[in-house]
């Protein structure tokens, strides 16, 4: 059987720098980029470092840049890529490289810790709550996030401008999931403006383009949060209105 092969160019190195190494990998049906990396790992070089867990797009471990595009390696099929040129596989470039395709994403976990936790309103007498699927729908979209950090990686505020004070799209999504939660009563709006710097996002939507869970990050999470910030901080009419009808106050 004459085996078809593909050429694949992998970044090998660490925080000090590195180089691209080319490998030949045999192709098989339905093969994804992660299979190719695993093949190299098992045969050519046991030390090639990569993160993965589920190999089904569920855990968000295997983010990288394939032919320059931020993607999950386990969900990128080889047959969707042009095979005439070598396929480049690189780590996410926004975070410091630890080794090869693995980078240090701990900054994200630090940001997450700063988000005030969920605080539910008082439950019914039986200790539970009622809310409808319509209420659930909106936040469930945000809760699909698998924390692959591809959006953080592609966001130019972090990638090019290195604004470490900016929470980044992943955590604006998380903030949205809390702020729009039908049961939550915590108020994070000032933090969203002052501590998480939502104003640094210029809604250029790269986060939405790369999200493997197809979360409409910009339109459904960030822009609605920006609008809430406007109501609180930039809109005298809304303020007046809220005073009048304190009950319907969006800002709780």
């Amino acid at each position: 059987m004459s085996e078809k092969t593909a050429k694949i160019k992998v970044f090998r190195g660490d925080e000090k720098g590195g180089e691209y190494k080319e490998y030949d990998v045999p192709l098989f049906e339905g093969m994804v980029v992660l299979d190719a990396i695993h093949h190299i790992q098992a045969t050519a070089d046991n030390t090639l470092a990569v993160r993965w867990n589920c190999k089904a797009g569920k855990c968000g471990s295997c983010g990288g840049e394939i032919n320059g595009k931020p993607r999950l390696m386990c969900m990128t099929r080889m047959d969707t890529l042009p095979l005439d040129k070598p396929i480049t596989v690189e780590p996410m470039k926004t975070f410091p490289v630890i080794k090869d395709l693995v980078c240090d994403v701990s900054w994200n976990f630090e940001i997450n810790k700063k988000i005030p936790p969920f605080k539910p309103k008082a439950p019914l007498a039986d200790g539970t709550w009622r809310f409808s699927q319509e209420d659930a729908d909106r936040v469930q979209e945000f809760r699909k996030c698998i924390e692959c950090f591809l959006c953080q990686n592609v966001c130019h505020v972090l990638r090019n401008h290195k604004k470490e004070e900016f929470a980044g799209p992943r955590f604006l999504v998380r903030l949205a999931s809390l702020e729009m939660h039908p049961l939550d009563v915590e108020d994070r709006l000032s933090l969203i403006k002052e501590a998480f710097h939502i104003g640094l996002c210029n809604i250029t939507k790269c986060c939405t383009e790369v999200c493997p869970e197809h979360i409409t990050i910009t339109d459904n999470a960030i822009i609605p949060l920006k609008e809430r910030v406007v109501s609180r901080f930039y809109d005298p009419i809304a303020k007046f209105w809220q005073k009048l009808f304190a009950k319907n106050d969006v800002t709780k």
Binding site: F118, Q133, D135, A136, Q140
Partner: peptide
Amino acid sequence: AWGAVFDRTKEG
């Protein structure tokens, strides 16, 4: 109570 959002019945 810790923030999970399960799918809902008609009664919520």
